[in-house]
Amino acid sequence: MLHKITKLIFILFTLTLLGACDKFSATESDVFEETDKDLSGVWKLEKVTRNGIDITGLMDFTQFSLDLNKDGTYVVENYLPFVVKDDGKWQVDDPLYPFHLIFKTEGSNQDEVSVEIEYMIVNGKRSLSIDLSPGCFSNVYTYVFNRTDHP
C-alpha cells in the first residue's frame, strides 16, 4: 500500500515538473531587440578633464553647446576648442551601437571628421563623452556632455 502511494506521489510530482517547464516556454514578448540610439538633441558640457585632471571649475564651459538636429545637421554654439568649428552635418557609424560620431563641415572640401564616443547612461540620463586633442597632441581632453532638451 505504502509503495503504491509513493509511486503515485512520484508520478504526480513528475507531471507537475513537466507542466511547469511547459509554462516557461519562450514567447514572442521575451525576444529582446536592440533599438536605434537617437543622439539628436542639445548637448552641453557637464565635465571637462585635461590629461585626466578635472578642469571643469577652472573656466566657464557652460556656454558651449553642440546641437545635433534630427534632420542630420549640427550647430556649434559659443565655440570652444572642439573637433569641428563650423556647422554642418552629422551621423553615427552605427545607429544600434554608436561608437563614432561623424561630422562633415558645411560647404568645405575637408574630409569627414570621425570621433570615438561613449554614449552612456549616468544617473538615469544619457551622457556623451568625447576625447579630443585640439591643441598639442600630447594633451588629451575629455568632454562629457549632458543632453539638456530631453533625457
Binding site: 585635461r50 590629461n51 578642469i55 576648442p81 591643441g135 598639442c136 600630447s138
Partner: peptide, 12 residues
C-alpha cells in the same frame, strides 16, 4: 600647465 601647449589648449 600643461608645459607642452599650443594656442588651442586650455592653459593654466
Amino acid at each position: 600647465q600643461p608645459l607642452a601647449s599650443l594656442q588651442d589648449d586650455f592653459v593654466t
